[in-house]
């Protein structure tokens, strides 16, 4: 695969994400922090990837770049064959809206809105979705995460695990190409965490591409592929023995 050029790789039909030499440098006054150093990854449609590494190794930085929330200092990022660096602000918004479902460690729900409204939020910014349709789809997504009976609850009336499930429903509602989750169970107890992870397993089984950041080896073990970061570099990128379906 390393022999293929970036463009060739990018246009491979099932290559969802292709990064080449992706680098992020934060300038802190005179000091430069190299959060990410020349990360080159290819992730195909339907993959289930765990990103691991010690604290400060650049996991969140990578996820934010993949989620089009942040822009790299250098390097290229092709999403569905399209060079993200050529997109303007509006187009990036559209990519975030249609292609990506992002799940944060801290849930990031609107505190005053109900679960239903939070889940509907991406549809508010999508083209041509009627209110009735948005509501139907939001209820559908809530049902997928097992929260049908909490639609009218506000975030503070929900447990951490429930809030994270609302956030996952929100990530799912626009049927994105990739689901990105940055330590989705980091703030949860073991029981709720397990439920959330089971949800991701099922989503992957249903064909969604899932990339999640975790510190937990048992979590990583469920995934089909584990990428290890250290100090902003990919130090290992392995398939799990358990899975054999990666082409």
């Amino acid at each position: 695969m390393a022999s293929l050029s970036v463009e060739e790789t990018a246009v491979q039909s099932d290559a969802l994400i292709v990064t080449r030499e992706l680098t992020k440098v934060y300038a802190m006054g005179d000091v430069q922090v190299h959060a990410l150093r020349s990360v080159s990854l290819t992730i195909r449609s339907g993959e289930y990837v765990a990103i691991m590494g010690p604290s400060g190794s650049g996991k969140s930085t990578l996820m934010n770049l993949l989620g089009c929330l942040d822009t790299p200092t250098s390097g290229a990022y092709y999403l569905l064959g399209e060079d993200v660096s050529t997109l303007n602000d509006n187009q990036l918004s559209e990519v975030r809206n249609r292609r990506i479902g992002f799940v944060f460690q801290t849930y990031n729900l609107l505190p005053r809105a109900t679960a239903l409204h939070n889940v509907q939020l991406p549809l508010l910014y999508a083209h041509r979705v009627s209110r009735a349709e948005a509501r139907r789809r939001a209820l559908d997504a809530l049902q997928q995460v097992g929260l049908s009976d909490r639609a009218e609850h506000r975030p503070r009336e929900l447990s951490g695990g429930q809030q994270q499930r609302v956030a996952i429903a929100r990530a799912l509602i626009n049927n994105p190409d990739i689901i990105l989750a940055d330590e989705p169970t980091g703030n949860l107890d073991t029981q709720s965490g397990a439920e959330i992870l089971a949800l991701f397993d099922r989503l992957n089984e249903l064909g969604h591409t899932v990339i999640l950041v975790t510190h937990d080896h048992s979590v990583a073990a469920r995934c089909k592929r584990v990428v290890q970061l250290l100090d902003g570099r990919v130090v290992s990128d392995e398939l799990n023995n358990a899975s054999d379906d990666r082409r």
Partner: peptide, 16 residues
């Protein structure tokens, strides 16, 4: 600010 961030993260454009 955080609300704005959330809205943008799920696809709100500048004009929204």
């Amino acid at each position: 600010t955080r609300e704005i961030g959330i809205r943008k993260a799920v696809g709100a454009k500048r004009r929204d």
